[in-house]
Simulated assay, not measured.
Amino acid sequence: MKLPEAEVELFYKLFNPLLVYAGQQTKLAPHLASPQDLRKLTLEQIIEIRNALYDQTQLFDSFMAQNPAGASATELEIVAGWKNFMRGMFYIIRYQKDCAVFLTSEAPAKAYGVRALYTSFEEMIGANLPLAVNTVLLPFKEYIICDGLISSYSMSFGSGIRQSLNEAYQRAKSQFGIITNFNSSEKRQSDMDSLKFYLRTQASREEYAAEIYALTRKSRDLLVFYHQEMGKS
């Protein structure tokens, strides 16, 4: 579930100079002269600079215009894409072979397939899921990554919350699929997919009774499918 090593190196080749630039421009770390100087900062200082960068998105534009890192045009396109970042709290719901599934905490919930950098998410924050984390998601070529700065919340989830999160995940996956590229078009859910989702369990049938009724009035195929599924109950 990690980004290929060469791609990780490219990410830091661009992201670390961007942090240096943000530290200089915001006066949070005006003494920074090179990416190597970031090692002299505490994690809290780096996070403060990173947060200022996302708060002041004009820094992306001025960084690209001045290009202190001497990046190529193709590399600057990657940096430009980072203006479409997603920041906030996410729930890590699943570890899959090629990514971790991050569920947004705001409605409508969407599930993103996110690649780790040098260290897998499981190694960083543990295998016990679901887990609430705070981080920033960035587009990187055909992938979605986090910016390497991730913190977890000290929250325990009871069975009710776990069930609610799983329901939100299943609905997001049904509606939009697992999104693995910010540039890809989101999956459109068909009426049949919606009906299948609503009929999954007795609880969902009760919760979405009005939606089920409306769908079964839209076409004979949907009505037939409804009776077939109810006949299995």
Rank of each mutant, 00 (worst) to 15 (best):
Thr57Leu: 11
Leu59Ile: 00
Ser105Glu: 11
Ala80Cys: 04
Phe102Thr: 05
Asn67Trp: 01
Leu59Ser: 01
Ala65Gln: 15
Ala65Gly: 09
Ala65His: 12
Phe63Ile: 08
Tyr54Leu: 11
Val101Thr: 00
Ile93Met: 14
Leu59Pro: 08
Ala73Thr: 04
Gly70Asp: 04
Val101Cys: 02
Leu59Gln: 03
Tyr91Ile: 10
Ile78Gly: 02
Gln96Tyr: 10
Ala52Gly: 06
Arg94Lys: 13
Met89Gly: 07
Leu103Thr: 02
Phe63His: 06
Asp55His: 09
Asn51Tyr: 08
Leu103Glu: 00
Asp61Ala: 13
Asp61Thr: 15
Ala69Asn: 06
Gln96Phe: 00
Ser62Leu: 06
Ala73Leu: 03
Ala71Leu: 11
Arg50Leu: 09
Ala52Thr: 04
Phe60Lys: 12
Ala73Val: 05
Lys83Asn: 09
Val79Cys: 09
Arg94Ser: 02
Met86Arg: 15
Met64Gln: 12
Asp55Pro: 01
Phe63Gln: 07
Val101Ala: 00
Ala100Val: 07
Ser105Met: 05
Ala107Pro: 10
Arg50Asp: 11
Ile49Ala: 01
Leu53Ser: 04
Leu59Gly: 05
Ile93Ser: 03
Arg94Ile: 02
Ser72Pro: 02
Val101Leu: 00
Ser72Glu: 09
Ala71Cys: 02
Val79His: 09
Gly88Val: 05
Leu76Ser: 10
Asn67Ala: 06
Tyr95Lys: 02
Ala107Met: 10
Lys97Ile: 03
Glu48Gly: 08
Leu103Gln: 02
Asp98Thr: 03
Arg50Ser: 13
Phe90Ile: 10
Ala107Arg: 13
Gly81Lys: 03
Gly88Trp: 11
Thr104Asn: 00
Tyr91Ala: 05
Ile49Ser: 04
Glu75Tyr: 08
Ala52Arg: 11
Cys99Ser: 11
Ala71Met: 08
Ala80Gly: 12
Ile92Gly: 01
Thr74Ile: 13
Ala100Ile: 08
Glu106Met: 08
Asn67His: 01
Ala69Glu: 07
Lys83Tyr: 12
Tyr95Asn: 03
Leu76Gln: 14
Gln96Ile: 04
